[in-house]
Computed example of a mutant assay.
Amino acid sequence: MQIRPAREGDAQGIAYVHTESWKTTYRGILPDDFLDHLTTESRLSQWEKTIRSGEKDQILVVAEQIDGNIVGFACGGKEREGKLPYDGELYAIYLLKEVQQRGIGQQLARYVVRKLHSLNMRSLMIWALERNPACRFYEKMGGTPVQTQQIQIGGQELVEVAYGWEDITFFGAKNLGSS
Rank of each mutant, 00 (worst) to 15 (best):
94 Y>W: 07
138 Y>H: 03
26 Y>T: 00
84 L>H: 14
157 E>Q: 13
65 Q>I: 00
117 H>F: 11
113 V>E: 11
61 V>R: 11
69 N>L: 08
66 I>P: 13
137 F>Y: 12
79 E>M: 10
154 G>S: 03
60 L>C: 11
83 K>Q: 14
32 D>W: 02
92 A>C: 12
80 R>M: 10
73 F>C: 11
64 E>T: 02
143 G>D: 06
131 R>G: 07
127 W>A: 05
107 Q>D: 06
86 Y>N: 13
83 K>L: 15
138 Y>C: 04
118 S>E: 15
129 L>I: 12
43 R>K: 12
69 N>R: 15
86 Y>E: 13
91 Y>P: 09
70 I>Q: 08
37 H>M: 00
82 G>T: 11
41 E>M: 05
146 V>W: 01
105 G>E: 06
131 R>N: 12
134 A>I: 08
69 N>W: 01
91 Y>I: 09
161 V>P: 01
142 G>V: 07
29 I>R: 04
79 E>F: 09
132 N>M: 05
107 Q>S: 11
55 E>H: 13
148 T>Y: 05
122 R>T: 13
71 V>P: 03
28 G>M: 05
131 R>E: 15
69 N>V: 04
81 E>V: 05
142 G>K: 08
35 L>H: 00
95 L>P: 12
130 E>C: 01
46 Q>K: 12
63 A>L: 03
151 I>L: 09
116 L>S: 07
114 R>N: 13
